[in-house]
C-alpha cells in the first residue's frame, strides 16, 4: 500500500528552482534513502513532506489524502510524520524526558503518566533511559540525536523522516545513531532518510533515490544502483563516494 505519493512537485526559492517536477511514491514499511550532492534538493523534498517548506506546484498525498487539502489539519497531519533534524533541535530548556512528553501531553492530549511511560519505553529503545532527567544541553551530539529520535517516536508517527541525521555528529558518534535507525528499519517502519552515509544507505534501504539539481536522476534497488548505475550523473556522484 502506498503511504506517501508525491506528484509533480515543484518548488523555487526566488529565482532558484530547487525541485523540478518530482514524483515519488513511498510504500508502507519501506525504507527509502535520498542521496545526492549538497544543494540537490533532497532536504527540501523531505521538508516538503511535512510542510516545513511550502511547495509551489504538485501534490503530496498521505494515505490517499492531499496533505494541503485542509489547512486546519496540518498540525494533526504532522503528528503522523516524525522528523529528525540534522542539528537535533531538542528543546534546550527542557530535560530529556520533557522533550519526549511535551508533544504527547500538549498535542495528543495524553495523560501525563501515560506520556511518561511511553517516553521511557522509547528512551529505553534508544538507550537513553538513564538520562531521562538530564538537561539536554549536557548531552553529546550522538545522545542528543538519539533523544530526538525518541521524541519523534513518542508521537507514534506512521512515517519517519530523517534529514541528514548524522551530518552534524563527530565521527565516533555516527555509529550509535545509525544503530538506532537500523533497529527501527528492522521493525518495519516506513522511513525516508536523507543521508551522505552511502554504506549505511546501501545496507538499510529498500530503495535508493539519487537526486541532482532538483530532479530525481535515478532510483532503484540499492544493490543495483550502487554497483551498476545506469546514468552518467549517478556514476560520477558515486565514484566520488565509493572508491
Amino acid at each position: 500500500m502506498n503511504i506517501i505519493e508525491i506528484e509533480h512537485l515543484s518548488k523555487r526559492f526566488d529565482k532558484l528552482e530547487v525541485l523540478k517536477d518530482i514524483s515519488l511514491t513511498i510504500r508502507e514499511g519501506e525504507v527509502v534513502s535520498l542521496i545526492g550532492a549538497s544543494g540537490s534538493g533532497k532536504s527540501t523534498l523531505l521538508r516538503c513532506v511535512n510542510l516545513l517548506e511550502v511547495y509551489d506546484q504538485g501534490t503530496i498525498r498521505f494515505e490517499g489524502q492531499d496533505i494541503r487539502g485542509n489547512i486546519k489539519g496540518i498540525n494533526a497531519y504532522r503528528t503522523h510524520v516524525g522528523m529528525i533534524f540534522q542539528s537535533f533541535n531538542l528543546f534546550n530548556h527542557m530535560s530529556v524526558l520533557e522533550n519526549c512528553t511535551i508533544g504527547q501531553t500538549q498535542v495528543l492530549k495524553r495523560p501525563k503518566d501515560e506520556a511518561v511511560k511511553l517516553a521511557l519505553s522509547f528512551l529505553t529503545k534508544v538507550g537513553m533511559e538513564s538520562f531521562a532527567d538530564a538537561p539536554v544541553t549536557k548531552l553529546s551530539g550522538g545522545q542528543k540525536q538519539r533523544v530526538a529520535i525518541a521524541r519523534a517516536l513518542c508521537m507514534e508517527p506512521r512515517v519517519l523522516l530523517f534529514d541528514e541525521p548524522t551530518s552534524a555528529l563527530d565521527p565516533e558518534m555516527v555509529g550509535e545513531v545509525l544503530q538506532v535507525i537500523r533497529s527501527l528499519a528492522d521493525e518495519g517502519r516506513t522511513m525516508i532518510i536523507v543521508t551522505h552515509e552511502m554504506d549505511f544507505a546501501k545496507e538499510v534501504s529498500d530503495r535508493v533515490v539519487f537526486m541532482d539539481q532538483g530532479v530525481i536522476v535515478e532510483e532503484g534497488d540499492p544493490a543495483l544502483l550502487f554497483t551498476s548505475p545506469t546514468v552518467q550523473r549517478t556514476k560520477d556522484f558515486l565514484s566520488r563516494y565509493l572508491r
Binding site: 498540525n75 516524525g82 537535533f88 530548556h93 511535551i102
Partner: peptide
C-alpha cells in the same frame, strides 16, 4: 529557527509553539 521547526514537526500549533518552546527560551 530549528526550535520552532521542531515544535511544528511534532504538531504544535502557533500558540503551543510560542507558549511551550519559544517564549520560555
Amino acid at each position: 529557527k530549528g526550535q520552532n521547526e521542531a515544535a511544528r514537526s511534532i504538531g504544535m500549533n502557533n500558540f503551543q509553539t510560542m507558549r511551550h518552546v519559544v517564549l520560555p527560551q
